[in-house]
Design a protein around this nucleic acid. Structure first.
Lengths: 187, 187, 187, 187
DNA sequence: CATGAATGAGCCTTCATTCAT
DNA sequence: GATGAATGAAGGCTCATTCAT
């Protein structure tokens, strides 16, 4: 087991977050927090110190997913071709939806009507990211000018929600390629 | 107290179903079943007699929602103008999604990978319904020929899932009018 | 199923008693009364009419077992050889213990210290029966004179309680033959 | 309130075991586990942490009874005269039967036919203990040579099971003295 | 800081009992 | 009389949370 000799509590927090993401997406937003602690090889008290309740943990997981997405944009844009970057990012976006579909309704129960700053701001971050990637590809002439960046995401969303089975990922991944391909300028 | 004579335990069942739908959509798929029983003015044993567990209740609510949708198609088609019928049905469809968004992920945890007959068959019923309504409107010349019926539903789905707040209904209702309007043949 | 056209409630009672005996001995004294009713193809209300509570049912089962034993003595003595009668009755006694082992501790919880008429009187009936059978066999010279009838029963009891497994019946049945054989006068 | 510091949760466990023994023997094997927890001044969760279900608790109580018996043999043999040790141990054995009579049938429902290691092994331990004590007394010339150690136990068993009332202890205790007395070599 | 034992409210479920048919 | 739907008080068990170590 990867027991840290000194208390690198930040890394600990990150670890819990990863385990929690996994647990939420595979078992729903009401998994036992004790189980999450157990899977993370951490006492319930430790989990509680980092995240005082389920809501806090859900929100933290969600924010970390969005952060992952934003970081990826920067990195991909810097190291890949425009189309590859777009494609890689959209594949990541599939994972994000996985979490979003579970976390979002759960958090809405807590927020319960209050205009939520969380989804507002993270939504903007994501839009900015996809816009950046698309714009870059349009500018370099790699994809058509008339592509609405958000439509790319909505399409993935659509598959995720309309799919009859819980395993919509395969379909979504195929769709990414189709969207990229269909977005190429006709010659 | 609205004490029912025992003969119509069917009406009792229906009543529980309504309360359950309400509870699930407003408080998530893990509301206390005891609370549902309480809200339905029914002992927990009675709820249990009708639905032996959460899964059964979820499925029953879901099926009843789909049945409502199918019945509505018949009724609306028989009593309204083509466009009005389409519009009324789509408004009902918003309610359906409300339930679907909560029930579907929850049931997937139970079904857990098994190719589920439930969503397969209900999906087909719903597709048939919208197709029927659109076809009728196309035939009577009230809407354009090139409307893909499923796109109408996908659009609603999109709003439901992409909306930042839990209260996407308003937006969805507006969208229905836009879709209907946009589907009218240009002259 | 043997549904009676007219309400022969006595036979109904007898039927419940049989089912109850079976249920108690195989599943312990705290089986669900509902289950017993179900297995007897009877509504819970009917069971309740005949036996107002678990205690009443337990006692009725117990009394019927003892009655069975007493009736058997009469019958066997009238129709079999002395040794055969003794043997057959002791085999029946094994079944009786089966019930007694379960019912007796359960009833003691209800009686809770009160000097119980039930076990006193039934005990006497059983002693009288075994004494009658043994006496008859002694008189006819088929078994030794110095056999204490109660020792025959105590031996069976001993096996029933000391046996490590729940399935002591086999051992007990073997013991019956040994006892009968060992009781034969040596020549 | 006798609040224990958390380190000796072992003592806590022991305490629950004692309460459980008491509850099982006086109220049968289906007492409410919640009630046991309450009587032990412990939350139900704590009881559950130590014993995940009724079967585990029953088995633990049973094993602790046997352990008590084995420990007593050692202790008594070391500190008492041979006859006193035998007598004291047999009085303890009466308590053991009290538990055995309740626990054994209950566990058999769980084990349900499987050849149970539990009763096999504990049976051997008990036999070894009584044999040791009797042998010692025989060797020192304090009791007759022809005493079958197991018969001493079987006699107690017999009283326990054949007694009409639930309060057979008195009779059993008298019997112990008679047995010891009767086992003394005639001079 | 981390740990994990303890807590106790509350969930799901069962089941003896009642009562309308 | 028989039926079985309804009731609701527990029971078993879970799990978020606290707190002693």
């Amino acid at each position: 087991m990867d027991k840290k000799p000194r208390a690198d509590s930040l890394r600990n927090r990150e670890h819990i977050l990863n385990i929690a993401r996994e647990a939420f997406t595979t078992s729903g937003a009401s998994v036992s927090l004790d189980d999450i602690a157990k899977k993370a090889n951490v006492g319930p008290g430790t989990l509680y110190r980092h995240f005082p309740n389920r809501e806090a943990l859900l929100e933290a997981v969600y924010r970390s997913e969005v952060a992952k997405l934003c970081a990826a944009e920067k990195e991909f844009a810097a190291t890949m071709s425009t189309v590859e970057a777009l494609r890689a990012w959209m594949l990541l976006f599939i994972d994000y939806i996985d979490a979003k579909l579970v976390i979002s309704p759960a958090l809405n129960l807590y927020l319960c009507g209050e205009s939520n700053e969380l989804f507002e701001s993270t939504g903007n971050q994501i839009k900015a990211a996809i816009r950046g990637l698309v714009e870059r590809a349009v500018n370099s002439g790699d994809i058509r000018e008339d592509v609405d960046p958000l439509d790319l995401l909505r399409a993935i969303f659509g598959v995720a929600t309309t799919a009859s089975s819980a395993d919509w990922h395969q379909g979504a991944r195929k769709l990414v390629d189709i969207l990229i391909l269909g977005s190429k300028p006709q010659e």
